[in-house]
Amino acid sequence: MRLITLALTVLLLLIQYPLWLGKGGWLRVKEFEAQVDAAHKKNAELLARNAKLDSEVRDLKDGTGAVEERARYELSMIKQNEIFIQIVGKGQAAAPVPLAPKPAAADAPVP
C-alpha cells in the first residue's frame, strides 16, 4: 500500500511539472501577460504622442497661429508696430531678449 501511495505521488508530481514550469505553464503565461500589459501601456503612450504631433503638424500646415506663437516664444519676434513688454517678478533678473531683425522691404510680412 505504501508503494502505491508513493508511486501515485510521483505520478502526480510528474503531471504537475508541465502545468507549472513547462512550455505553456502558468508561470510563463503570467510573464507573457505582464509583457503584453507593458506593450499596451507603451502603445497608448505612443498613440497619445502621435495624436499630439499630428494636431501640431495640422495646425502648422493650416493656420498661422502656431507659426506666430513659435516665432514669439522661441525666436522672441514681435509684429511690426507692436510693443514688447516684459514683467519681471521680485528677485528675478531680466534676461535680455534679442529683437528680430527689421525686414528689408517695408511691405514684407513679419510674423
Score class of each variant (00 low, 15 high):
V29G: 00
L27G: 04
K41W: 05
L53T: 08
A7R: 08
A7Y: 07
A104S: 03
E31K: 12
G63D: 06
R58S: 12
V29A: 02
G91I: 03
D37F: 05
H40F: 01
L3P: 01
K79W: 09
L6G: 06
Q92N: 13
L53W: 11
P101V: 05
R58I: 06
V110R: 15
L19M: 08
G91L: 03
K30C: 02
G91Y: 01
F84H: 12
A106P: 02
G24V: 04
A39Q: 00
G63P: 01
V57Q: 08
L11F: 00
N43Q: 10
D62A: 15
T5E: 14
D37N: 14
K90W: 01
W20Q: 12
L19N: 09
D59M: 07
K42E: 13
V67M: 11
V10R: 10
I87L: 14
K61H: 09
V36M: 00
M1H: 11
T5M: 06
L60G: 09
V67R: 15
L13T: 00
P103Y: 09
D54A: 13
G89T: 06
V57P: 02
L14M: 10
M1V: 07
D107R: 08
K79Q: 14
E45P: 03
K52G: 01
L8Q: 12
H40N: 07
R28E: 06
I78T: 14
K23P: 03
P109E: 00
L27H: 06
L3V: 07
K41M: 06
L53H: 13
K30L: 11
V110C: 05
A100D: 04
P103F: 05
S76I: 05
L21I: 01
D62Y: 08
G25M: 00
W26E: 08
G22Y: 04
L8W: 02
G91H: 03
V88A: 02
D54L: 12
Q16D: 10
L53I: 14
L47Q: 15
A100K: 06
K41A: 13
I78A: 15
N50L: 14
A44D: 13
V57Y: 11
L14Q: 11
L3K: 11
L6D: 09
R2A: 04
L12W: 08
K79V: 03
I15M: 01
Q16Y: 06
Q86G: 01
D59S: 15
T9P: 01
N43E: 10
E68G: 08
